[in-house]
């Protein structure tokens, strides 16, 4: 004969199990709202690509010559910067190009110690502020008088925001 005693205990056990399952479900569900770690990894890679591109552009052909980056900034050649940066940053193995876009600012100190940061060059798509961009910068010493400064030699920062389109 089937013993039908203790059914209430069974129901209580199942109910407790369900409540705990629900708690576990809510715990797992609430953590998935957290920013996934993967976005930071791709940010890191994009930062490395940008820094490497600027380093390549800032490498002089010989010990006495100026680097292409310094020459481009000194002559204000925005188109030269755009084509060189894009071809370096977007180069991939094979024919297909990567889809990196950028905006570069030139930042320097005026003679009254205020900071001037002006747009130097940018890619075809303008920066709207909603892109998930990373920031890289490169120091240059320019042999040129910049607007608002005295003297012909200045330290300046080339600051580049870059993002994948």
């Amino acid at each position: 004969m089937v013993n039908e005693n203790g059914q209430l205990y069974t129901i209580e056990g199942v109910a407790a199990g369900l409540i705990l399952l629900l708690t576990a479900y809510f715990v797992v569900n609430s953590t998935s709202i957290y920013t996934p770690g993967d976005t930071h990894i791709s940010d890191m890679q994009l930062e490395v690509i940008g820094a490497d591109a600027l380093t390549m552009m800032d490498t002089a052909p010989n010990a006495t010559g100026k680097s292409p980056l310094t020459q481009i900034i000194e002559s204000g050649n925005a188109d030269g910067f755009t084509s060189m940066f894009l071809s370096t940053a977007n180069a991939t193995t094979g024919e297909r190009q990567d889809t990196i876009q950028f905006q570069a600012n030139l930042t320097y100190v005026r003679s009254d110690d205020s900071i001037n940061s002006t747009l130097f060059a940018r890619s075809a798509r303008p920066f709207t502020g909603t892109e998930h961009a990373v920031h890289v910068s490169r120091w240059v010493i320019l042999e040129k008088n910049l607007p608002g400064t005295t003297g012909d030699r200045h330290a300046a920062l080339v600051e580049v925001l870059l993002w994948r389109d």
Binding site: T10, G13, A16
Partner: peptide
């Protein structure tokens, strides 16, 4: 009534 206590135990262990 102390029958079916193992079901309660299982419920606790699983959860």
């Amino acid at each position: 009534n102390d029958d079916a206590q193992w079901i309660v135990l299982m419920g606790f262990i699983v959860s």
